[in-house]
């Protein structure tokens, strides 16, 4: 009975954390726009220019179309890693302490705050996709596919935010992790299938790409939005789910270090 009501409180806590994020965004949307600048440049400039070279084998898909899912996922990674860092550092020290003293479980607080980054990533999708359509990217015209892709981005975002909670818990000073966001995101991005197929990478990078969670997110989004070929989707979703669960557990444990 008691454990059931605890579960109810914890699930409720997840939704409250997401509501909080929506309320914050309603008051200040600046971050949504500024964070969208970089991905839009990739799609509007980098994509068409490199595409003209016809140097990258994309199995007949126009290059800009090919990288659009990769850019969406990169944008999500940026949003979630920085979200986690700022959440842990500075502004929310007192808030996190206070949340620990509520009846909601520590896990639900960590997962809830991580999933909130999914809210921000979701708005990135809403800005980037219309611009991609505008410059001629062809997206599979199936609303169900699109919704699934968005949901995958939303959930994966939580896992990446959890990574940054973990990293923040290992950092003793704020100065040390100012650059760390970039230092995680760019290697993840380049060692993935976001900009080019895994097959054309050097063998070492290929191996990295297969253990890189980003590759699976990109693959899932690409199959749903661009190719319509869902043969790998189940594997992708399973890998992403495992990644999320593992990261949530590790982040919840490391969370203890942050608040002590």
């Amino acid at each position: 009975m008691s454990s059931l009501s605890n579960l109810r409180i914890s699930v409720n806590n997840l939704f409250v954390m997401i509501e909080l994020e929506l309320r914050r965004l309603r008051h200040d949307r600046t971050e949504i726009y500024t964070r969208a600048v970089q991905p839009v440049l990739w799609i509007v400039i980098f994509g068409p220019v490199i595409g003209n070279l016809r140097a990258i084998p994309t199995a007949g898909i126009p290059y800009t179309d090919y990288i659009t899912p990769g850019i969406l996922v990169q944008s999500m990674t940026f949003v979630s890693i920085f979200f986690g860092l700022t959440m842990v550092w500075e502004r929310e020290q007192g808030i996190l302490k206070k949340l620990l003293v509520t009846p909601a479980s520590r896990y639900s607080t960590v997962i809830g705050r991580s999933m909130s980054s999914g809210v921000r990533s979701f708005f990135q999708v809403l800005i980037i996709v219309p611009i991609a359509l505008l410059i001629g990217v062809r997206i599979v015209p199936n609303p169900l596919y699109f919704l699934t892709a968005t949901a995958i981005i939303f959930f994966a975002s939580g896992g990446f935010a959890a990574i940054s909670i973990l990293i923040a818990s290992l950092m003793k000073s704020r100065e040390r992790f100012m650059g760390i966001g970039q230092a995680i995101i760019m290697p993840l991005f380049f060692a993935s299938n976001a900009l080019y197929p895994v097959e054309i990478m050097p063998p070492v990078l290929q191996q990295l790409a297969t253990v890189n969670p980003l590759s699976y997110v990109v693959d899932a989004v690409r199959s749903l939005m661009i190719t319509g070929d869902l043969s790998n989707l189940l594997t992708d979703v399973i890998v992403i789910a495992i990644f999320d669960v593992v990261m949530f557990i590790i982040a919840s444990i490391s969370f203890k270090r942050i608040i002590e």
């Binding site: 309320r23 914050r24 008051h27 502004r91 020290q93 007192g94 808030i95 302490k97």
Partner: peptide, 10 residues
């Protein structure tokens, strides 16, 4: 807590 524990952007 001693530190600020409310969200300032809502």
């Amino acid at each position: 807590p001693q530190e600020m524990s409310v969200w300032t952007d809502i």
